[in-house]
Amino acid sequence: MSYLVTLGIFISIHAIVACGLNVIVGYAGQISLGHAAFFGIGAYAAALLATRGDLSFWAALPLVLLITATAGLLLGLPSLRVREDFLAITTIGINFIVESLFLYVSFFGGALGIGNIPRIVLFGERLKGPTFLALCLFFLALALLISWGFTRSWAGLACFALRDDEGAAASMGVSPVRFKLLAFVLGTTFAGLGGALYAHHMRFVSASDFGFPVSVMLLSMVVLGGMGSLWGPVLGALILGVLPEIFRPLTEYRLLLYATLLLLMIRFQPGGLLGPGSLARKLFSFRRKGGEVS
């Protein structure tokens, strides 16, 4: 039971962070291979504020979100001026730099990381196991709600336009830098939230938890589930969370699994499992039309 709960906690935290990446990659069309950096910034900020700042999770949370949003703004500003493949490389660079700062700067605990992070207290109760899972699911629901609201806002429409054609969008009054940055900051803030939950769940953070492979895993979740779809990142996090547990004896081949899955997806379902033109969508619309082929 507790094993399933722990698995659920990891999946929901990853789903929150993947939802953030989906805003950047799926909605605004900006590839990011360094999302784990912001996951890490959130986790370290929460860890430091809890252990050295002696702040409760709730008092620290607004600060954690502010810190990750600011980091997203500062790192996004120069990155988002370059396009596609260059952006991918720039974000990989950001990931390695942030990871090595955590590893080599003693303020961040160096190779030992930061331990003794207290549990989250809510209504006088220390959250662990099922209650912590409930908290994670609550925040996941919140992340989905914000994502949904974003797609319905003018800013969301502006991002869709940018994703499809930057030049055409600009000629219709959408400032490319402003809206790419907005999506980037929103996405990194989600990562910060996930990071804070991660820190208080593990009660210990270290640099390697937020390395480049984690960014690849997060991007795989978004691509697998369906870039730009609301539930895609959740489905992606669920599948990539459960599969390695089923194939536990093959742990060594985890990266091979991700790579194969990515290749298969891009070959057969480029829109992801829940994206436009996917099998799931076709099946659903087939049923809705009462079996009529359109």
């Binding site: 003018w154 800013a155 429409l157 502006a158 869709f160 336009a161 969008a169 219709m172 009054g173 959408v174 400032s175 402003r178 809206f179």
Partner: peptide
């Protein structure tokens, strides 16, 4: 609709 957001962006 993208154009109609002109005043709001």
């Amino acid at each position: 609709s993208v154009s109609l957001g002109l005043r709001r962006y």
